[in-house]
């Protein structure tokens, strides 16, 4: 299982990379493996205000429709148009070319509740053994 050490995670299997008050986020390797073939990604509009924990992106496989939740509150600064054209990037490179959106963080305190690499690894192992 690919879980980079330099990222933070959520219980909903999103990853986030925080730099200079902005958060780049996507779904984890575990999530893309569970979804299998991603065939459609519905991204929010740039400028949209999002609230931590609220659904704002939709990722679909052939059979399933899944919400992706905002990892932090803030404003959508940029969306990955390339992934909208080629949704398979979410499967091929979930932490790289398959990133979904960039958010300008509005409340810094929220980052405390994100999961560390170790905590997220534990969570995935627990789910795999279910």
């Amino acid at each position: 299982m690919n879980i980079p050490e330099n990222l933070k995670y959520t219980e909903e299997h999103e990853w986030v990379k925080i730099e200079d008050g902005t958060a780049v986020m996507g779904i984890t390797d575990f999530a893309q493996k569970m979804l299998t073939d991603v065939v459609f990604v519905e991204l929010p509009e740039v400028g949209k205000q999002v609230e931590k924990g609220k659904p704002f992106i939709v990722v679909e496989s052939v059979k399933s429709v899944s919400d992706v939740f905002a990892v932090l509150s803030g404003e959508v600064m940029e969306v990955n148009e390339t992934v909208a054209d080629d949704p398979a990037l979410v499967n091929q490179d979930p932490y790289g070319k398959g990133w979904l959106v960039k958010i300008k963080i509005s409340s810094v305190g929220e980052t405390d509740s994100l999961l560390t690499h170790d905590a997220y690894l534990k969570l995935c192992e627990g789910e795999e053994n279910k």
Binding site: T36, D37, V39, S61, V62, K63
Partner: peptide, 8 residues
């Protein structure tokens, strides 16, 4: 429902 992926 699938062994590998539905598309494959």
């Amino acid at each position: 429902v699938q062994y590998t992926t539905i598309i494959e």
